[in-house]
Design a protein around this nucleic acid. Structure first.
Length: 336
DNA sequence: AAAATTTGACCCGT
DNA sequence: ACGGGTCAAATTTT
């Protein structure tokens, strides 16, 4: 990340992202090749192999999608001037600009050219909790949909206009009694704030017991029963210089992002966190660990703090979510 | 004051 | 013309 940063510097952000995707894909491919080359030496786990293949496939998908957004939206490289271009498609529809300037009455409203429909990739998840997914979203619309019982909400990336990030998502409640939402993600984030969470090594998301918990000390999986022994430990060590939760409240979602960024700060800056060498991380891979994004925060529907994770490159159907046992109140939270 | 949401009008593909 | 998606003014929240 350091040596590449020197020559990546100055490139547009989406190009950097594409390079990162390709680099990761190369690494994954090397791992896979190694596994296939010495099937005896390295313990073979078909599940892990499949995970690798999935991630490589997702890498290609992401990269193509990023490149696609580069070609159709070259303005991404110059965020300041993107407004007029953002709403123009490649068509000859831009004739409406020079004319009709004087009268901008409510009735004679300015007719902006709408943005071309995003035909980038989509992926949806069905979840029972509307927890913070690590990105900053701005709601821009809400509609009821023909054969749906509830309204659909439309969100775009907060940094759409500063940074030209085209990522968007839709949230549709499917049922209420046990709350169930279908969340559709559209497009990739090209903004700098790619993920507010750090990467952490997590156990295979396909394991039987979905009660995944994280040990921030070793980046490994923690058994449920050990949670109580790990969290208080951090409490003592991670005290000063980290954000406080004093102003958190339970009543709004915003609290979860506060909480989350605090936690993330603790995780990513935890002095106890071992800095994995590249080789070491490769060893981790051989031990069937799969790198994932991890989030945590206040879960409004279950009224507790949750930790959850999803596999990094594939954003569909692999959310793993569980509560942290023994944490029923913010007061139980280990920090502060 | 600034940022985020709400809401009806508007746009566009089918 | 319809319906899903987006805009932007008004309103609310921070």
């Amino acid at each position: 990340m350091d040596q590449s940063a020197t020559w990546l510097e100055g490139l547009p952000i989406n190009r950097i992202k594409a390079f990162q995707e390709l680099n990761q894909g190369q690494e994954l491919t090397n791992n896979l090749r190694e596994m296939l080359q010495w099937p005896r030496k390295i313990k073979c786990d078909p599940e892990y192999e499949d995970g690798l293949v999935m991630q490589v496939a997702a890498m290609f998908k992401n990269t193509l999608s990023i490149l696609d957004s580069c070609t159709s939206d070259q303005h991404l490289q110059m965020p300041a001037a993107d407004l007029c271009l953002t709403y123009s498609s490649e068509g000859p529809i831009s004739e409406n600009f020079g004319e009709s300037e004087g009268s901008i009455t409510p009735a004679n409203r300015k007719k902006g050219v709408y943005k071309k429909r995003n035909n980038s990739w989509k992926s949806s998840v069905v979840t029972s909790t509307l927890v913070d997914d690590g990105h900053a979203w701005r709601k821009y619309g809400q509609k009821h949909i023909n054969n749906a019982n509830y309204q659909r909400s439309y969100y775009r990336c907060t940094y759409k206009f500063d940074q030209g990030c085209l990522a968007a998502k839709q949230v549709q409640m499917i049922e209420d009694k046990p709350p169930k939402y279908k969340i559709t993600y559209i497009g990739n984030h090209t903004c700098k704030n790619l993920q507010r969470s750090p990467e952490i090594i997590l156990d295979s998301p396909t394991s039987r017991d979905t009660s995944i918990l994280l040990n921030f000390e070793t980046k490994g999986l923690v058994a449920k029963t050990e949670v109580g022994t790990y969290f208080p430990y951090m409490k003592d060590e991670v005290k000063e210089g980290y954000p406080s939760h004093g102003n958190l409240r339970h009543d709004r979602y915003s609290s979860s992002s506060d909480l989350q960024s605090s936690l993330n700060a603790c995780v990513s800056h935890n002095p106890l966190e071992p800095k994995l060498e590249p080789e070491m991380s490769s060893e981790f891979n051989r031990e069937h660990m799969i790198p994932s994004k991890v989030h945590s925060g206040w879960d409004d529907h279950h009224d507790t703090i949750s930790a959850w994770a999803y596999q990094s490159m594939t954003s569909t159907h692999d959310y793993e979510m569980d509560h942290i046992p023994g944490m029923n109140d913010l007061n139980d939270f280990p920090f502060e």
